[in-house]
Design a binder for these strands. Structure first.
Length: 270
DNA sequence: CTCCGATCCTGATGGC
DNA sequence: TGCCATCAGGATCGGA
């Protein structure tokens, strides 16, 4: 579920309450995630101070100073702070207990997420081949145009490829293409320079707006039932098949390819 | 190398 | 109400 904005919102929500605190214990309730949660994670992290929580693509990097905990939320993962004596529910896989009593809790029903350790995240196999961050300047019109050269895959598949650019999932791919006026099924290699420029800009503004929306929902997240990083998206096209395009009123079309659907306006997007 | 479909897993939803 | 099929926001793998 979580794409870059949700992961970034999660990061912003947890870092202020955790940075500078010492980890006391890790409670692994159910180690079965995409890969088993390392059994020695508690032994290796206990007593260490969490310096910062960073993000690379959809990965959260807990910086314990020379040792990093990598967390990926997969499709259904979420992090929240557990209240004192709040019992764990189904699919609550891991608790991190900090010395001041704060407990961070990971829930992941579908178990596509991951909790791993690394002393060198940039060279970790999962992160080593990641493309640029979409909100940074190295993800540019020129970069995207270059990345599209010779590619026959659809532009939607291309921007969802984390080797090209990180953080863009199924929702924000559709939303960005809508904002750029480009159909998701277009062959990447056939986009013009101008279209790539529009798309690179649209990816940035779409993600930025979503991060901002997440930020405004952050204040609620400490609430008892508040999961972190999930918020209402005012979608242009995603999930709106058959509903009128917000710009021209034409019914939004749904394109089903390999169990992943795309949405677009057949008039506004060329 | 590139592309595309299958796949891991559980829960929510809608049709009958 | 119960049962079944379908779909879900990720990312890797293997075959073509």
């Amino acid at each position: 579920m979580p794409e870059l904005p949700e992961v970034e919102t999660t990061r912003r929500g947890i870092e202020p309450r955790l940075a500078g605190k010492t980890l006391e214990a890790v409670e692994i309730r159910d180690a079965r995630l995409r890969w088993p949660v390392p059994g020695d994670i508690g032994a290796r992290l206990a007593g260490k101070k969490l310096l910062a929580v960073r993000r690379r693509g959809k990965y959260l990097l807990f910086d314990f100073g020379g040792l990093f905990q990598i967390v990926h939320l997969g499709m259904s993962g979420s992090l929240r702070f557990a209240a004192k004596n709040e019992t764990a529910a189904a699919h609550d896989h891991v608790d991190w207990h900090f010395a001041d009593g704060t407990t961070l809790r990971l829930r992941d029903p579908r178990r596509f997420g991951a909790v791993l350790l690394s002393d060198d995240p940039p060279n970790h196999p999962l992160l080593a081949h990641l493309g640029p961050e979409p909100l940074r300047s190295d993800f540019s019109a020129a970069y995207l145009y270059r990345a599209c050269r010779g590619r026959k895959t659809s532009i939607k598949n291309l921007i969802m490829d984390s080797r090209i650019v990180v953080g863009v999932g199924n929702i924000y791919a559709s939303e960005s293409l809508s904002a750029a006026g480009i159909r998701p099924g277009r062959a990447a290699g056939r986009l013009t320079r101008a279209e790539c420029a529009k798309l690179a800009a649209a990816v940035k503004t779409t993600l930025q707006n979503a991060v901002r929306a997440g930020g405004s929902s952050l204040r609620d997240y400490v609430a008892a039932n508040g999961e972190l990083g999930y918020f209402q998206l005012h979608a242009r096209v995603y999930g709106r098949a058959g509903l009128p395009c917000r710009a021209c009123g034409t019914p939004i079309k749904k394109l089903a390819t390999a169990q992943r659907s795309s949405f677009y306006c057949p008039v506004c997007q060329k």
